[in-house]
Amino acid sequence: MSTIPNFIEIPVNPEIAQKEFEVYSKPSTLTDKPFHYCPGCGHSTVHKLLMEVVEEMGIQGDIVGVAPVGCSVFAYDYLDIDMQQAAHGRALAVATGIRRMLPDKLVFTYQGDGDLAAIGTAETLHAANRGENILTIFINNAVYGMTSGQMAPTTLEKMVTTTSPFGRDVSTQGYPLKISELLAMLPGVTYVTRQSVHTTANVRKTKKALRKAIELQQEGKGFCLVEVVSNCPSNWKMTPLQSQQFIQEKMIPFYPLGDIKTPEGK
């Protein structure tokens, strides 16, 4: 822990910390409720980025979100927009119902790997295959967070979880699932990208990807998927900084970052 022995806190400089010089503050589209997520969790970073985009695009009244079952089950406590909470795995069915009734609105789901790629695989695949005008934000942290660290469909080979205590054995527990690559094959899917929020550069790229996906939604271009390779320091049994390193060294080699499918033809 980087506390300094001879600790001197520098007070805020009133000459600089003035509204006119402000270059960043929490987006107004986030509520004031403190996030319940563990220290260093990528969930809240992605919440923040999404709401920055919503604020910048001025679409707070035009967007309806669907929260999943998983750590982000309470997403609607933080995202200051109309939202529905879905049964485990069914976010894209719920979002389909909303979008079909509200063809002029923007609809997104926010889902984890268990919700999207295990129990909800059928709903995910078919909503994508119908080319529903929905943005899915997919947080892949390779573990079931809310139920405290069981194996997920995206858990890496040999990775230790509470239900793969000797490391994921692919011969009996199957292989880590690259759902984004799978979905990218479908003609109804317009944009698939894999990003992360473990460095400042990646945070900027993820925000850009979210903005691009929402713009495609506005144009009615079909299903968009933004996967965010994220962390779970608590269940990975790491400090937040160690978890960022794990993303860089272990997750990204298997889940490479970048666009998988774009409307421009990648």
Partner: peptide, 13 residues
């Protein structure tokens, strides 16, 4: 940018 809690305001002169 990296703060997950969105609790840092930044000023630049």
């Amino acid at each position: 940018l990296v703060c997950p809690e969105a609790i840092i305001s930044v000023y630049r002169k």
